[in-house]
Design a protein around this nucleic acid. Structure first.
Lengths: 239, 239
DNA sequence: TGTACATCAGTGAACGCGCGTTCACTGATGTAC
DNA sequence: TGTACATCAGTGAACGCGCGTTCACTGATGTAC
């Protein structure tokens, strides 16, 4: 089964291409009707295929949905990684802001794909294991930024914890200890909790904007978002 | 058209009752399939009615959805007001925590109703004006708490702003000024922005728990939520 | 290089299902005199 | 208090639509010898 690039048959090439086209058509469908209403028949229609033909490419509707979800996580993750990489390494707050703006920018340009991953789950659909890794890309970006900020700070003034300390209840302490080990990240547990809250606030702020919960309170969403993310970054101890 | 309680005809009573039963059946449907899949026919079936009978009570599916949304906002708002009222008036942090826990408790007990109002909007459905007032109940509760905290603080140490101050960009300043006027709330603009963020973080944290974004990072959700909300409250200057 | 066979993509009809909404209707309830 | 008429709740059939999935099939592409 040597399917190296050169030796790929015409059949294999056609298959890859159609798989991509099916996903693209499905994404276009999403834009118009949302994830719950994704229809295999409509996708087939748009491509001029018999509806049954889709089954040569995906075992069923749920697997197509899974592919779209994985692609969406990867797309927003890649975009965030790209913009974050453009900020100067020493500017930790700038790196966080770049990440946040990247996520919001992508969300505004891909509303329904964003809803697919950060809105309410599609009813009757259970996300499989395959979505976990791609979903972690943005949080891991944040971890990297905080790690670097910690390292820079430790050099100048060793031992000082990031952010404002406060007593952690036992249940939280246990979870944060496990999370620190999992991430191989040597920061105070308070900081880990703060990172989770920053991540939550980032997505929460975009959700509120997109889902209309700020109508009547905010009109300059660009400025609002940037300001709230600056405050969030400062709270993380980023400078 | 004197429809006072005593003079209500049997017809009017029956109408109110069936209207309520239709909404209850619809809520039960929500629990199983989510808002997008709400079906008039299924509701009628559950009540042993012809599907066309529903049209005597609601002009169509969208109006039934609107009724459910308004009811949901009112239900969670009432629950929050009830629990908040039980906390001692002078314990501002306690009042905020009571509010937050009330919202989370209601959300856990009414997942699909919660998704209806705080998840992604139902595709093809546009929320009408009627949903605005009920949606404001919880934010207004927060406004009241901060107002009282401000008043108490001003008595002891007048003029000190709530929370940590920071320079506000022009766009944000303008929005917060307008919002302060709208709410008739005399707090620094920074505090208003902080309140919006607290409200966002409250809903964001519940969303992350409910939608599974914290799987693998958090296991003791009770403790996690309470801790994050304590931090958020402290940031608001509540004690 | 040519042939025989296996693999695979795509078809089109069919199954069985569910949906929102309209309409002319029956029969019960309410109201004005 | 009784009668005549108007109002309204609920019916059941129908319209026109869309869906996911299965299946036996044709014809093109790939492969082993």
């Amino acid at each position: 089964v040597t399917t190296l690039n050169a030796s790929r048959t015409a059949r294999a090439r056609a298959r890859d291409e159609l798989t991509r086209e099916i996903k693209e058509a499905a994404r276009r469908q999403l834009t118009e009707h949302g994830g719950a209403a994704l229809s295999l028949r409509a996708v087939a229609r748009e491509l001029g295929l018999a509806s049954s033909a889709i089954y040569r490419y995906f075992p069923g509707r749920d697997e197509l949905l899974t592919a779209l979800i994985v692609d969406a996580y990867d797309a927003v993750g890649e975009e965030a990684e790209r913009l974050e990489a453009e900020a100067p390494r020493g500017d930790h707050l700038g790196r966080w802001l770049a990440t946040a703006e990247a996520v919001r920018g992508w969300a505004l340009g891909h509303r329904n794909e964003y809803e697919l991953i950060f809105g309410s789950p599609v009813p009757g659909y259970a996300a499989p294991q395959a979505t976990i890794d791609p979903a972690a890309r943005i949080p891991l970006l944040l971890v990297g930024i905080v790690r670097d900020a910690m390292a820079a700070r430790d050099g100048a003034d060793p031992g000082r914890p990031v952010g404002t300390a406060s007593a952690l209840p036992e249940g939280v302490r246990a979870d944060m200890t496990a999370l620190g080990t999992l991430l191989d990240l040597d920061v105070p547990q308070e900081s880990l909790a703060e990172m989770l809250q920053a991540w939550t606030t980032l997505i929460g702020t975009i959700n509120f904007e997109l889902f209309g919960h700020l109508v009547g309170s905010v009109s300059d969403y660009d400025a609002y978002f940037r300001y709230q993310m600056s405050r969030t970054g400062a709270r993380l101890g980023l400078v």
